[in-house]
Design a protein around this nucleic acid. Structure first.
Lengths: 151, 151
DNA sequence: TATTGTTATACTCTATAACTATA
DNA sequence: TATAGTTATAGAGTATAACAATA
């Protein structure tokens, strides 16, 4: 049930994002950078960013190029180690992320309105809990029979 | 949150399915055929089956070929209209589906055990409700601003 | 002519491997 | 030599278009 739902949600979000000139990965990157911007652990390397959003490091390069070209983020070499790139969101990037998020949230609210109020809270709480479970643990959950072994 | 969770769940299920010699689509087909087998509306055409599981009709052909070759389903021309193929699960197919489902459910239970009992029920109820919403309505939910128009 | 299943083709996404520049 | 980022290449998955059989 989760997979088809995710597909439908993604399909519903894409037009909204495109209205903001964003691809899915572009949006994901913006969100990730904005979130860590508030935290105390700034993302220092592109590889770390890629891993944190579950993407390959080679996959986000074009995305970063585009976002940088449009002035949504800044990418400058770390003076301490000039191999790594420091990634920071610009004001425009943060604003765009927020307006896109607001649009998406509107759609989500409309969908969540279909749920009984009690279930709605439980659903969101459960979703947060399950999302926080590392993928490795989810995979381990049923692979323990060991009858299946990844190559 | 839904998309990454779905990805993780799918990744966790694949090894289990492979232990039963099933691909993701093979399992989805088995489930779809088994479910409608109990209902009164048997799937009469491959195209209808494909649509019901959100796949392209060309995508399930190889899957059906494989399942048929392994004696898990029967595919015979409809006497009334010899263009369409009647699809029915064999006993072996139904048994395989059930044992695979049981394995997957075990993994799911282990994951759901992480949730507070109250949230767990709300989560599953909400999931069922949201899954039942047609994809078209989910898409319409936020595309109404009309600033985004599919090409 | 229209439709079902099929095959062949092209396209999109994603991952793997080779390259550069720094260390 | 090892690592961060980049580029180039190959692979999987998917959809689109052409085909044969039947209506």
């Amino acid at each position: 049930m989760v997979t088809p739902l995710g597909r439908a949600l993604l399909a519903a979000e894409l037009p909204v994002l495109r209205a903001h000139g964003l691809s899915m990965w572009g949006y994901v990157v913006l969100v990730a950078l904005d979130d860590v911007g508030l935290a105390d652990r700034p993302v220092r390397t592109q590889a770390a960013l890629a891993q944190s959003i579950g993407a390959d490091k080679t996959r986000i390069i074009g995305v970063l190029d585009d976002l940088q070209r449009r002035g949504l983020l800044q990418r400058r070499p770390d003076p301490a180690d000039r191999r790594v790139h420091l990634l920071t969101l610009t004001g425009a990037g943060r604003r765009l992320r927020q307006s896109a998020s607001a649009d998406i949230r509107r759609g989500e609210e409309r969908l969540l309105a279909r749920l009984p109020p009690g279930d709605r809270d439980g659903f969101l709480r459960a979703l947060r809990i399950l999302s926080a479970v590392p993928a490795a643990e989810i995979a381990a959950a049923d692979g323990e029979g060991d009858s299946a072994r990844p190559p």
